[in-house]
């Protein structure tokens, strides 16, 4: 079975309809833990994008060679390999960003979103479609993380990407670690609200 969606649709699907953070409610740990600044969100997004795209392509490429009984271990092995690679690369070339993200880079290996995508999409589709689906999911994750980071950084520190835009710190509360929960909850509620309003407007 091949997907009938175009490449562009696959990407948009990942960012909006099936956004990993706000719609599928997966990979919440980093969304709460290190979404304190836009930059953090961006960096982890890049790492996830890399792992997702490479794992999807790898699985799609070898999908006929994988024995169905050892499907899950193979997925895990694939993901762990690419996580190790990005972990080593980041540690070598971007040590500062790597230090800020701490253990979360290594924990990409346990992100449900990646395994899920391999199981639901990559093992059935062509390399090309899997590539674009991986891009979509990765960008969707990155978008979610950056949106959270934007809100938290702006409200908490009064800055965007480290540049002072407000000149004061409105609510330090938002960068404090536990505020991640509130922030994610409020933003989800916000998206729900938009959806409700949109549906109502459509019906009327």
């Amino acid at each position: 079975m091949a997907t009938d969606k175009s490449n562009m649709q696959l990407v948009v699907n990942g960012i909006l309809n099936e956004n990993p953070i706000f719609r599928l409610v997966l990979s919440m740990c980093p969304a709460v833990g290190i979404s304190t600044t836009v930059m953090n969100g961006f960096m982890l997004g890049v790492a996830v994008l890399f792992v997702q795209v490479f794992s999807s392509c790898t699985i799609a490429l070898f999908k006929n060679k994988i024995h169905p009984r050892i499907r899950i271990p193979t997925y895990t092995l694939t993901i762990a390999t690419w996580v190790t690679v990005i972990d080593l690369v980041l540690a070598a070339y971007l040590p500062e960003a790597y230090a800020r993200m701490g253990i979360f880079i290594k924990l990409i290996v346990a992100f449900a979103i990646i395994t899920m995508r391999l199981e639901m999409f990559a093992c059935k589709e062509s390399v090309n479609a899997s590539f674009w689906d991986g891009i979509g999911m990765g960008l969707g994750f990155m978008f979610g993380m950056m949106a959270l980071g934007l809100v938290r950084e702006l409200l908490g520190l009064g800055t965007i990407l480290g540049y002072d835009v407000l000149g004061f710190k409105p609510l330090l509360f938002f960068v404090l670690p536990f505020a991640g929960f509130f922030c994610v909850g409020l933003m989800m509620a916000f998206f729900n609200y938009i959806e409700i309003v949109y549906k109502r407007a459509k019906r009327a």
Binding site: I66, P73, L77, T81, L88, A91
Partner: peptide, 23 residues
């Protein structure tokens, strides 16, 4: 198949390690 995939994975990781450790 598991052995082959492990060897492939090992090769990829080993290569990445060798390439990045100096940098």
């Amino acid at each position: 198949r598991l052995t082959v995939s492990c060897l492939l994975a090992g090769a990829v990781m080993g290569a990445a390690f060798v390439m990045t450790s100096k940098a």
